[in-house]
Design a protein around this nucleic acid. Structure first.
Length: 929
RNA sequence: GCCUGGAUGGUGGAACUGGUAGACACGCAGGACUUAAAAUCCUGUUCCCGUUAAGGGAGUGCGGGUUCGAUUCCCGCUCCAGGUACCA
C-alpha cells in the first residue's frame, strides 16, 4: 500500500476528535506545561498558509512536552470582537455575530485539517456573553481600585475611602489625576456623596476624564496611540485628529515601573523587550523651578531635565505653545508675535509637524524668569519643539549640551555658554558628559556624577527642584464609539458613573437597527431601544477596545466553563502562568503590554499568583507572499498582445509584467494549460518558451488576493497532506525569521514521508517489519535523531530537525532497515512533527490506537554513538588539511607519533621541526611548524 | 538620527560553547529502469587554475585586529529589515 495521506489524516483527525484525545484535566500528578498561541481574529478571508506557522511550532512543542511526561494545556480560541465584522455589518446589515460565527466555523475546519492537538473543550470566544461578562467584571474591579504608591500595589477603593474618613487626604500617596484636592477627615465626611464620588474618580484605575484623544472621523471612533501610525489610523489609513472628549481611561502609568522591571524576569526576544522599554520610556532626571517674579511671589516655571548638570548653561526657558501660562507671561509688546505663532502651530497638523521636524521656529514672550542658582534673568520663549504632553511642558534651553537648543539659540541669536572644558561648540552642541565643568558656579571642576549629586542636594535645600522620574507612556484610552465590543458596565446618575449591579452581568450587547452612530452623534449603542434597564438608566454608550478581551484570555482557558468566577482558585493555582507563548511581534506595545498590566492588577487583588503572565515568548516571523509574473509582449503602439515571453528571454521584447496566480505555477514554471483557463482572454495565448518551458518572474510582496499570491493551506493539504505541510513550514527556515512562502522545496519533504512509509512496507505494499534485533548502525542512526530532535525542540530550531529526519531515513534506507524496534521509537520522535503518519504506523505496529500522543519520548543512549575510529582533521600551520583515521582509544603520545609518522603530514612538514601540537578535547587538530 | 536584528553557493538554509564551511532540501546536469510518461534509484554540483585526473589556489557583505586556527570574538565601515522619533 502506498502512502495515502488523505485517508490516513482524515482517519486520525476523526479519531482524536471522537476520543477527545487532547482533553486535559486541571488536576494531575504530572508537572504542568502551558503552551499558548496568540488567538486569531476570525477574518472573512480565512486562513492562508502564513497563519498556521506559529500554531504548528506550538503544536510540535506541545506534543513533544506530552511525550516528555508533562500535563500540557494547549488551547485555542477566537478574539472575535473587532472592526472588520462591524464594517461588514455597516455595509450589508448582517449582524456581526452572524458573520463572526460563520468565519469561526471556517477557521475551525481549516485548523482541524492541519491536525493540531488543541483541547477544544476549552475554546473561548471574546464576543460570547459567557466570556465578556468576565471582561466586564474585571473592568468593575479596576473601577473599584486605586494604586497605593506606599505599598506599590493596587488596592480596593474602600481602603482609600476608609483612610479619607479617618485622616483626610493627609498621608495618601497615590497614582492619580493632577487636580486631586487636599482635605481633612472632617471636610471629607462633610462632602456630599456626589462630591466624594467625583474625587474618588481621580484615583480609580478605570476612570473617566476629559482628555485629548486620537479621533478618527472616518471610523467614527477614538484610537489608542499604538493604533495611530504616522498620523493616520493603523486600520484603513484614515486621517486622525486631536479632539477633547470625556473618555474612559486605564491608569496603566501606575504600573510603569513594574512593567519595566518585570522585563528583566522574563525570557522574551530582545527586540521585543527593547520595544516595550522604549514605549514605557523611562527618563531619570530632575524637576527644576525657575521663579517668575512678574507672576507674583512663589510663582515658578517648572521644567524637567535629564541633564541637571548643564543648568549653568541655560540661556532661556522654552514652553510648549499650549502651556497654561503663556497668556499671562506674554507682554503687550510681544502679544501680536506670540498670538501669531500660536495660530501658526495650530494650523500645522501632526503630519506637518513631523515632516517639519528640523526647521526652527518660536517666539519670545517678553517675560523673564530667574535662574535659581545664579539669580540671572532668563528669557521665556515658546516653541513647538517643546511638547505639552511630556514632562512639565517646559524645558530649560542649554545650547551647549543639546542640539535642538543649539539650533534654537543660533537661529534666534541667543548666547551659547560652554560649560565643560571638553566642549567644541563651533558647529554643534556636545551632549557628552566628558570633561570638567567650567562657568558653572558650585560645580566648577567637578565630573558628571559629582555635579549631579551636588546640584540635586543644593536645589532641594533651597526648594528649587528635586530628582524625578518621567515616563513617556500615557494612560490608555479605553472607550470606543463602536458597536461590536463589550458594553462598559456603567450607567450615569447626575453625570457620575456607577457600576451596574454585579448580578446583572453580563450586560448584554443590545440589538440595534443600524451599526452607525446616531443622528445626534452618539455611538451606535445610542440606537438600542429594548436594552435592559434602558428606561431606568443612562447607560455608557461606548464599548471596550479590542484589547480588553485579549488582556486576560489565557486565564479563561484554565477554567473555561466556570460561571462563578473568571477562573477558579484551584485551576489558576495549578496552571499559574503561560510557559511558552508564540505569536507575532506586531503585538509588542499593544496586547503584550496591556496583558502584563491586567495581570499585575489581578495579582495585586489576589486573584492570580504570578506577577508576569508569559514566562517565555517566541515571535514567529511573518510569511510573506511570493508573487509570480508573466510577461506580455507589447506591440508597436505599446498595446498588449496575446504573446507571452518567458522570463529569461524578456529583454528581447517590450513587455508588461502581469501577476499570475501562483497556484498554476510550479517551481516558477507556468502550467500553460491552466494559464489558458486562468482568464478568458488568455484562452488562445501564445508563448515564447526557453528550453520548452515558460519560466515566470517572481517578487516578494504581502500576501493578498489582488496579487494572486495567496496560498490556502487546504490546497497544500489536499495535494501533499497535513504532515507534509507541517514539516515544510518548519523546514522553510528559522521560526523567528520572516520569509516568503514558496512551494519550491515541498516535494523534498513529501518525498521524505513517502520514503519513511515505504521503508516499513514490503514490495507487495503491505506493512512489513522485521522482529530481528537492530544492528549497531541502525541503533546509531536512531539515537542520533533522538538526541538531535530533543536538542532542537528545546532551542526552537525546528527547521534543522526536519533535515535531520531526512538524514536519518536516508541512513536507514541505505541499511534497508525495517526493524520493529527502530520504528517503534522513531514514531515517538517524529510524532510531534508528523502526527498522522506516525499514529498510523504506531497502530500498524500493534499498539493500541491513539496511545502514541501520550507515549514516552525515547531515552537517548550515548553508547550507541561511541565510535571506534576517529577521522582526525589535521591542519599544518592552520592551513592544509588532511584526514587521518586512527583508533579512538590511543594514548595522546601514540596519536602524536602516528600523526607525525604519516607520510602526507611529513610531506607538509618538509623536514622542518614541529614547534607545537594543538589538542582539542584530547584530539590532535593542528601541527605548527 | 537613535534602538534592535541581519548579510554564507543558482535558491531556502546548516555549522549548538572558536576546530574539516556549504549539512539537508530545491534546482540544474548526466545516467539507470521504462515502448513512453509518471514514480523510483544512482552520480555530479561554492568559485578559479588544471583537457580528464592527480593536485593547487581563493572563499561566509567590506577593511583591519586577536588566535596555532575566526562564519563564530574585538574595532571601524557598507547595505538590508523591523521598531522608534523634536521625549528635554
Amino acid at each position: 500500500m502506498d502512502y495515502h495521506h488523505r485517508a490516513i489524516e482524515k482517519k486520525w483527525q476523526k479519531f482524536w476528535a471522537d476520543n477527545q484525545t487532547f482533553r486535559v484535566s486541571s488536576t494531575s500528578e504530572k508537572p504542568k506545561y502551558y503552551v499558548l498561541d496568540m488567538f486569531p481574529y476570525p477574518s472573512g478571508a480565512g486562513l492562508h498558509v502564513g497563519h498556521p506557522l506559529g500554531y504548528i511550532a506550538s503544536d510540535i512543542f506541545a506534543r513533544y512536552k506530552r511525550l516528555k511526561g508533562y500535563n500540557v494545556l494547549h488551547p485555542m480560541g477566537y478574539d472575535s470582537f473587532g472592526l472588520p465584522a462591524e464594517q461588514y455589518a455597516i455595509q450589508t446589515g448582517q449582524h456581526p455575530a452572524v458573520t463572526t460565527a460563520a468565519n469561526i466555523k471556517r477557521y475551525r475546519e481549516q485548523l482541524d485539517n492541519i491536525g493540531f492537538s488543541f483541547d477544544w473543550s476549552r475554546e473561548v470566544r471574546t464576543s460570547e456573553p459567557s466570556y465578556y461578562r468576565w471582561t466586564q467584571w474585571i473592568f468593575m474591579q479596576l473601577f473599584s481600585a486605586w494604586y497605593n504608591k506606599l505599598s506599590d500595589c493596587a488596592e480596593p477603593i474602600d481602603r482609600l475611602v476608609a483612610h479619607f474618613k479617618k485622616h483626610g487626604s493627609e498621608g495618601v500617596d497615590a497614582v492619580c489625576d493632577e487636580d486631586v484636592r487636599s482635605f481633612t477627615a472632617d471636610e471629607w465626611n462633610a462632602f456630599a456623596p456626589e462630591e466624594q464620588q467625583r474625587e474618588l474618580l481621580k484615583y480609580r484605575l478605570a476612570y473617566l476624564r476629559e482628555s485629548t484623544v486620537n479621533w478618527c472621523a472616518a471610523l467614527g471612533t477614538v484610537l489608542a496611540n499604538d493604533e495611530v501610525v504616522n498620523g493616520v489610523s493603523e486600520r484603513g489609513g484614515y486621517p486622525v485628529e486631536q479632539k477633547k472628549m470625556m473618555q474612559w481611561s486605564m491608569r496603566i502609568t501606575a504600573y510603569a515601573e513594574r512593567l519595566l522591571s518585570g522585563l528583566e524576569t522574563i525570557d522574551w526576544p530582545e527586540p521585543l523587550v527593547e520595544m516595550q522599554r522604549n514605549w514605557i520610556g523611562k527618563s531619570v532626571g530632575a524637576n527644576v523651578r525657575f521663579p517668575v517674579p512678574v507672576l507674583g511671589e512663589d510663582q515658578a516655571i517648572e521644567v524637567f531635565t535629564t541633564r541637571v548638570d548643564t543648568i549653568y548653561g541655560v540661556n532661556a526657558l522654552v514652553l510648549a505653545p499650549e502651556h497654561e501660562w503663556v497668556e499671562q507671561l506674554t507682554t503687550e509688546e510681544y502679544r501680536a508675535d506670540v498670538a501669531n505663532y500660536i495660530v501658526q502651530t495650530k494650523k500645522k497638523s501632526e503630519l506637518d509637524r513631523m515632516a517639519d521636524a528640523r526647521s526652527v521656529s518660536g517666539a519670545f514672550t517678553g517675560s523673564h524668569a530667574v535662574h535659581p542658582l545664579t539669580g540671572d534673568e532668563v528669557p521665556i520663549w515658546i516653541a513647538d519643539y517643546v511638547l505639552a504632553g511630556y514632562g512639565t511642558g517646559a524645558v530649560m534651553a542649554v545650547p551647549s549640551g543639546d542640539q535642538r537648543d543649539y539650533l534654537f539659540s543660533t537661529h534666534f541669536g541667543l548666547p551659547i555658554i560652554p560649560i565643560s572644558d571638553a566642549q567644541q561648540l563651533d558647529e554643534q552642541a556636545d551632549p557628552t558628559k566628558a570633561g570638567r565643568y567650567i562657568n558653572s558656579g558650585i560645580i566648577n571642576g567637578m565630573t558628571y556624577h559629582e555635579a549631579v549629586e551636588t546640584l540635586i542636594a543644593k536645589l532641594s535645600s533651597i526648594g528649587a527642584g528635586e530628582a524625578t522620574v518621567t515616563y513617556r507612556m500615557r494612560d490608555a484610552v479605553f472607550g470606543r464609539q463602536r458597536y461590536w465590543g463589550e458594553p462598559v458596565p456603567v450607567y450615569f446618575k447626575n453625570g457620575l458613573p456607577n457600576l451596574i449591579d454585579k448580578g446583572d452581568l453580563p450586560l448584554l450587547l443590545p440589538e440595534v437597527d443600524k451599526y452607525l452612530p446616531t443622528e445626534t452623534g452618539e455611538p451606535p449603542l445610542g440606537r438600542a431601544t429594548r436594552w435592559k434597564y434602558r428606561d431606568e438608566h443612562a447607560y455608557e454608550l461606548s464599548t471596550m477596545p479590542g484589547w480588553a478581551g485579549s488582556s486576560w484570555y489565557w486565564y479563561r482557558y484554565m477554567d473555561a466553563a466556570n460561571d462563578a468566577a473568571f477562573v477558579s482558585k484551584e485551576a489558576v493555582d495549578y496552571w499559574r502562568d503561560v510557559d511558552l507563548y508564540i505569536g507575532g511581534s506586531e503585538h509588542a506595545t499593544g496586547h503584550l503590554l496591556y496583558s502584563r498590566f491586567w495581570n499585575k492588577f489581578l495579582k495585586d487583588m489576589g486573584y492570580v499568583p504570578e506577577e508576569e503572565p508569559f514566562k517565555k515568548l517566541i515571535n514567529q516571523g511573518m510569511i510573506q507572499g511570493r508573487s509570480n509574473f508573466v510577461y506580455r509582449v507589447l506591440d508597436g503602439e505599446g498595446r498588449g498582445t496575446n504573446r507571452f515571453v518567458s522570463y529569461g528571454l524578456k529583454h528581447g521584447y517590450p513587455t508588461i509584467a502581469l501577476h499570475v496566480d501562483v497556484n498554476i505555477v510550479s517551481n516558477d514554471v507556468l502550467d500553460l494549460e491552466k494559464f489558458r483557463q486562468f482568464r478568458p482572454d488568455f484562452a488562445d495565448a501564445e508563448f515564447i518558451l526557453e528550453d520548452g518551458k515558460y519560466i515566470c518572474g517572481h517578487e516578494v510582496e504581502k500576501m493578498s488576493k489582488s496579487k494572486y499570491n495567496v496560498v490556502n493551506p487546504d490546497d497544500i493539504i489536499e495535494q501533499y497532506g497535513a504532515d507534509t505541510l507541517r514539516m515544510y513550514e518548519m523546514f522553510l527556515g528559522p521560526l523567528e525569521q520572516s520569509k516568503p512562502w514558496n512551494t519550491n522545496g515541498i516535494e523534498g519533504v513529501y518525498k521524505f514521508l513517502r520514503k519513511f512509509w515505504k521503508l516499513f512496507h514490503g514490495a507487495d505494499g503491505g506493512f512489513a517489519v522485521s522482529d530481528d534485533q537492530p544492528s549497531k548502525a541502525e541503533l546509531k542512526a536512531l539515537h542520533k535523531i533522538i538526541k538531535k530532535v530533543e536538542d532542537d525542540i528545546e532551542r526552537f530550531s525546528f527547521n534543522t530537525s526536519v533535515s535531520s529526519f531526512m538524514i536519518c531515513v536516508n541512513e536507514l534506507t541505505d541499511l534497508k532497515c525495517n526493524k520493529r524496534a527502530i520504528l517503534q521509537e522513531l514514531c515517538a520522535v517524529l510524532h510531534p512533527y508528523a502526527p498522522h503518519i506516525t499514529e498510523e504506523l504506531w497502530a500498524l505496529l500493534g499498539n493500541t490506537a491513539g496511545t502514541l500522543s501520550y507515549a514516552t519520548y525515547p531515552t537517548f543512549n550515548p553508547e550507541y554513538l561511541v565510535e571506534d575510529e576517529f577521522a582526525y582533521p589535521i591542519s599544518v600551520n592552520g592551513k592544509t588539511r588532511l584526514n587521518l583515521t586512527l583508533p579512538l582509544n590511543l594514548e595522546q603520545a601514540d596519536v602524536e607519533k602516528a600523526v607525525l609518522a604519516n607520510e602526507d603530514v611529513q610531506r607538509y612538514l618538509d623536514g622542518k621541526p614541529v614547534r607545537k601540537v594543538i589538542y582539542v578535547k584530547g584530539r590532535i587538530v593542528n601541527v605548527v611548524v
